[in-house]
Design a protein around this nucleic acid. Sequence first.
DNA 1: CCGGTGATTTGACATCTGCCTAATTAGGCG
DNA 2: CGCCTAATTAGGCAGATGTCAAATCACCGG
Lengths: 118, 118
Amino acid sequence: MSKQLLPLLEKADDGPCCVPLVAQTVDATDAADLAPAFKALGDPVRLQLMSMIASADGGEICVCDLTPAFELSGPTISHHLKTLREAGLVTSERRGTWVYYRADRARLGALSALLNVA
Amino acid sequence: MSKQLLPLLEKADDGPCCVPLVAQTVDATDAADLAPAFKALGDPVRLQLMSMIASADGGEICVCDLTPAFELSGPTISHHLKTLREAGLVTSERRGTWVYYRADRARLGALSALLNVA
DNA sequence: CCGGTGATTTGACATCTGCCTAATTAGGCG
DNA sequence: CGCCTAATTAGGCAGATGTCAAATCACCGG
């Protein structure tokens, strides 16, 4: 019902996504949902992984192309990818021998909107 | 020199701020600078603190108004505020007995822009 | 069915985090 | 000055995190 009254500044029905930090205080529930996503981006390696995935040609990238970009062991990269997955920032799909990662742009957009100050 | 050629997609001189994750891979240096800011937002309490500060009336808020909003000790809130400060997300100023916190909107905007997918 | 390659899971370990209590610093006010 | 309140700093502790080596799982090719 409030949906029709304040379409631009209300919270989405399916989770926090649109109201900027700067316009309205985030409640504890939303904070609990969103903080893990920021936490996942709070490691330099994961931030780079995230950007490699998000900016990948064709919208996806193979783990085999991610791992050699860092001087870290395979398991460590795999662990970081799991963290991004559990934060809802990426999805993975196995096709044959290789596993491909893809960014969840809606989730990224929600985080961006939250920090928006414009 | 590339400055004149690609004014819209290049990196700023004074730090990473404008190029979305989704458009260009973040290099290790930028990742090292930006990850700590996301890390700071990666705790539910700090995310709420950040939004309380950023959305505060008059652009600033007293620690004495922040602390009672949580069921945590004063030192713990102070510790979280220090983390936000060291991440470059807020600044503080003492005026008499009280200390006031203020959001660094440029920093928030840089993070928002980085995650932008539009 | 077997061997090989890509990826994840497991187990271990050093470090970092978040929390508290106690102590300290900073600034009013009588 | 002496005391009170606001806030930060110091110290300590349980639990989470980042890393790697070793083991395991998934798929492909012979």
